[in-house]
Nucleic acid binder design. Sequence first.
RNA 1: GCGAGGGUUGCAGAGUCUGGCCAAAUGCGCAGGACUUAAGAUCCUGUCUCUUAGUGAGUCCGGGGGUUCGAAUCCCCUCCCUCGCACCA
Length: 907
Amino acid sequence: MSDYYEMAKKWQKRWEESKVFKSKADKSKKKFYCLEMYPYPSGKLHIGHVRNYSIGDSYARYKRMKGFNVLYPMGYDAFGLPAENAAIKNKIHPGEWTLDSMASMRKQQKELGFSYDWDREIASLQPEYYKWNQWIFTQMYKKGLAYRKAASINWCPGCNTVLANEQVEDGKCWRCKSEVDQKKLEQWFLKITDYADELLKDLDKLDEWPEKVKIMQKNWIGRSEGVTLKFDVVDENGTNIDEIETFTTRADTVYGITYLVLAAEHPKAIEWTKGTEYEEKVKEFIKKVKKQTIIERTAEGKEKNGIFIGKYFINPFTSEKCPLWIADYALYEYGTGAVMAVPAHDQRDFEFAKKYDLPIKVVINPDSFDLDAQKMNRAYAEDGTMVNSQGFNGMHNRDALDDIKKLAKEKGWGEPTINFKLKDWLISRQRYWGTPIPMLYCDKCGIVPVPDEELPVMLPEDVEFTGHGNPLTTSKTFQHSKCPLCGAQARRETDTMDTFIDSSWYFFRFTNPEHHSDMVEKEEADYWMPVDQYIGGIEHAILHLLYARFFTKVMRDLGLSHVDEPFSRLLCQGMVIKDGAKMSKSLGNTVDPSDIITKYGPDTARLFILFAALPEKELDWNDQGVHAAYKFLNRVQRLTENDMERGFNIEQMPESLTNADRSIIGKLHKTIKKITRLFDTMSQSLAIGALMELVNDINKYTTSGSGTSYNKSVFRYLLENLIIMISPFAPHLAEEMWETIGNEGFVSVYQWPEFKEEYIDKEAQACEDLIHNIRSGIQSVQKLTEIKPKQMKLFIPDAWKYDLYKLVAQKFSETHDFQTIMKEVMSDPGIRSHGTQVSQIINSVVKNPSKFPKHVLSMEKEIQTIEENRDLLGQEFDMEIEIIKESDAEENKAKSGLPSRPAFILY
RNA sequence: GCGAGGGUUGCAGAGUCUGGCCAAAUGCGCAGGACUUAAGAUCCUGUCUCUUAGUGAGUCCGGGGGUUCGAAUCCCCUCCCUCGCACCA
C-alpha cells in the first residue's frame, strides 16, 4: 500500500473536519456552479466515473483558487431498474440495494478526495425529493402539459415496461438492448412538443456547448417548415367520398404529384377499402408491415413495398385525378401519416414509382439541361427552373415556393405548417422503483390529481417482486384511495415515472437541498443557477440534456426560477478504452479504480487520468502511464528536499539575481500564464504537461553548475507556486508539501498565482540558454578529448547576428522597403550564409522599428554575459578561457584552418 | 445520403484559430550512462538523416498545387479514417 494512500486519508480527514469545501450563497462574491452528471448507484465506481469527477474536481478546485464562490455538489440518481431487478433476483428491497451501492460509491469518492460539499448530497429515492416530482407533475397536469392518452408505444420485453422514443436506439432498448415491440396502451405523456420551438431556438444561445450535441438535439427536434395540403378523395367514378391531408416541405413540386401514399397504420386505409375488392389485400399488407420490427422496417436500402387501394384524389393545382396507395415507406408518426409523391424530385418516391410503374412528371429542370422522365435513373432533388407548372413556369423553384404556398392558402387548399420529429415524452413506467404518478381515478370525477397537501404519494412497502407485472399492483393498500373532490372510492395510478424525470431538475435541488417547503428555494436558485460547467458522457446528448432543458423551461414558466437554460457550458468527456476496446465486464478489460488508489494513491489515479488525454477525447488506459504519473509525483515531492529560504519578494526583485534566477522566474510566469489559459479551456492534460516541463526546468535550475549555486529564496518562490498549481490535480500531495515547507492553512483554498508579464525576462533567458550551451559544449569537448585541456578559446557564437542587426540598422536608416533591404543585406558576403534568418530579422525590424534597438541591446547583453561568466566557467572546468568575438575571428581562421564559425577551440 | 470531427516525428498526443522563436511540448517506448554483487527501482543523457568540436546542413507534419521573403499552420483540389443521424415527405 502506498504512502500516498495514507497521506491522502490524513488530508481528507482534515478537509472534512474543517468543512473547507462547504459553499454558501453570497451575493458579494462571483459564483461558479460546477456539476458532474450525478451517478446511478450501481455498486462500484468505474473508471469512467473517476474520469468524470477528476475533470470536474480539478476544475472546481481551480475556480475556487481563482476566487470564485464555488458550488460543487454530489448526489445519486437513485431510482431505476437495476435495483428492482436485483430485488427480483436476490429478494432484497430495491431501496436497501440502492443505499448499499450509494454507500460504497460515496466511500470511493471520498477516497479520491473530491472537493464536494457533502452537506448538499441528495438522492432521488428520498420522499422529500420525489415529492417534488409529483408536485410538478400535478402542476403540469393543471396546465395541460401532462396528459393521458392511448397511443402506440414502445414496449421493452426485457424491462417489462414502456420506453420513451428517446430511449429507443436502433429499434432496441437503450438499457437492455432488447428489441422493442409496438403496443397500444393508455399512458401518461408530458407535452415537451409545446416547447419544441424554444428548445430548438435556444440551442443558439448555448455557445459553450459542443457543436455535436447541439446538432444531435437539433436533428432530434427535427423542425421542418412546410405546408399541409388538403386533397379531395374520390372513387373510380370521381364521386367525392372524403379528404386527406399531407405535409410537404416541397410545395414547389406540387405540379409533379402523380400519386399519394398512406402509412400502413393510417386508419383511412381500412375505412376506404371496407367492402371493396381491395379490402382483403390491404388488410393483408398492413398485417405484413406491422409484423416487421422497427429494425426491419428501417433497414438501410430497404426495398419499398405498397399496394393500390382503389381510390383516387384530386390535385387541386392541376385538377388531375391520381391514385392512392398504401406503402411501408410512409411513417404514420410523422406529419399526417400520408405523403404526396413526386417521383421526379424525391428519391424515395422515384424508387417506388419505378417499382410499381407509376407515372413520373418533371416540374423542375436543372440549369444546364432538361430532364427526361423516361430516361432518369434517379430523382432530381436539387434546385432549378420550374416547368409543367402552369403560371409558375420559368421561375426559379425557390422563388416559386412561397408563391405556391400563398396560392394554396388563398384557395383554401392548404395551410403553412411547421412539423417536428419530436414527440411528447411518454413517462409512464410499469415498474415499482420510481416516483409514483400522483393521480387518482374516480368513477364520478374522472382523473383527479392528488392534492398538494397529500404529497408525497409514498411507495408502498407491502409489495412482491415476482418479475411479472408491476409490483405496485400487488400492494393491498396502495391502489385504494379516496377522491379528493367527491370523497368516493378512487383507484390510485400504479404507474411510476420515468427516472429521467428525477435527473431533469436535480441541479436545482442542489442549490438548497435542505429547503422542504418548496420545490426550489428561489433566492438560492437565482444565485447559483445556471450550472456554469456541466460534465458528463455523450450518451446523454439527447435524453437527459433535452429533458433537463425542457424541465428548466417549465419551471421558469411556473415562476420557480428565472433561468432559460440549465447548463451554460457543457463538456462531454470521452470514453475510457483499454486494449483498443471500450472497458466492459464481458471483455474482461476493466480496471478497478480501487486497485490504483490503494497501490499508488488517489493523486496518481487522478493525475494519470487527466494527463492521459484531453477530457473530451478517448482515453486509452495503460499501466505504464499510471506508473509515469506516480514517478512524476515522486519527483515533485523530492523538490522539498532542496535547501530553501523564505523572504523572496517578487514585487521587489533583488538586483543581485543572476540570469539563471531571472530566467527560471520567467519560466514560472510563462507556465502560470499557460496553465491558466489551459484550465480555462478545459485542457487539463496539457496543463499537466506544462507542469512537467516546469518541474524539469526547476530541477535543472537547482542542479546545474556546481549544484548549490541556485538562489534559495527564489527556489522557495518557485516551489510554492508549483505546489499551488499542482494542487487541483494532486491535492493531497500538494497539501502535504505545503505543510512540509512550513506553510499554514490549506493550499486547496490558497489563491491562484497571478501572471506577470514583466517577470518574463527574455534577455535573461537567452543569456541563460547561452551559458547552458557553452557549458555543455565544454563538457562534450572534455569528454571527446579525454585529457582535460588547460586552455580554451571561446568564440562568441551568434556574433554574426549582432553584425547583421547593425547592418540592417544602417540600411533601415536609408530605406524602409523590405525588398530593398533584403536585397542589399543578402548581397553582403558575410551575411549570405545565414539567409533563412536574415529575412526574419529584417521583417521584424521593418514591421516594428521601435523594438529594433532592443534586439541590438540583447545581442550586446549576450556578449557581456559570456564575458561575465568566463571566470566562473573557467573555475568550474579548471581551465583558462579566452574570448574571441566572431568578427575578430576571421584572421584567426587562417591560422587554425577551422570552419568559419566555430564556438570553441582547444589549445 | 446528410451532418460533425480527424490524418503530425516508433506509439499516444500538443502545435493549426493568431504563419517566423518548430526537428516540432509532454508522456510512453527505445538506446547509452550513473548507482548496484546483480536484477528491478531510481536518476542523468540521447532518441528524423548526415555531420565523431557547431547555436551546422538536409529532409519532414496523408497526397498534389497555390499565396508569402517565410507554411505543420492560410487558400484550392484530392485520397483516407472515425463518429453521430438516417425511408422525417
